[in-house]
Amino acid sequence: MGQRVIIRFEQAGATFSDRVAVEPLTLTLSERRIGIIGLNGSGKTTFARMINGLVTPTNGRVTVNGFDTSSDGEGVRRQVGFIFQNPQNQIILPILREDIALGLKSRRLSAAAVDDAVDAILARFGIEHLAARRAHELSGGELQLAALASVLVTEPEVVILDEPTNQLDLRNRALVETTLRGLDENVLVISHDLDLIGDFDRTLLFHESCLVADGKPGDVIAEYRKIAAS
């Protein structure tokens, strides 16, 4: 963990049947913490989904540590975890413990090894007490941590979070922020919460399907404020 992950976009773009979601772009991402900002519908989420192969590029190519998202989606997804905007939809099985174990199923581990891995990840996030709880009873902050645990248990190198503090109260937001800071994995965070990404290593700004600014958070956020005001 904590090693360098290299994500490369080579003239990669995505066009859905009737519209361009992300204009072709070329860039290399290898920083530990990267923020992605932009107005609603600017292409942020599609860009992020292109990184783990949930959306495959309609032109150019995207690679993660050399794995091509179009031809080796499985290899890519083993390295890139994704936390969805609505963690409610991410928890797939009724009981949290079962859900976390589910991600390990395709690894063909022994039952004991699965148990150990689940225990370890629950302890890492301090949510052992939630193991036997039903997913639909968890609060917003608990759901976000549960989703994070269910993804990180498979030990991806990078984790992408889509608006992780959206709809959280101040306490839960602080909880998620602290958890994010403590992560060893590389993180990419899509957020409207500018404070959350204020001290990240790099920030990307999307506007109307194009990458329009790329650099230190301070400068990019200033650019974003200009766009939002215009």
Binding site: S17, T46, T58, E74, R77, R78, G81, F82, I92, V151
Partner: peptide, 27 residues
């Protein structure tokens, strides 16, 4: 919510070898 749930299953590699598809109506 089916689109996101399905995407989560594919993103977590739960059904093993699968090629993800473009999610046209997810955005």
């Amino acid at each position: 919510s089916a689109d996101e749930v399905a995407a989560a299953i594919d993103a977590r590699g739960i059904r093993g070898q699968r090629q993800a598809r473009n999610l046209e109506d997810s955005r």
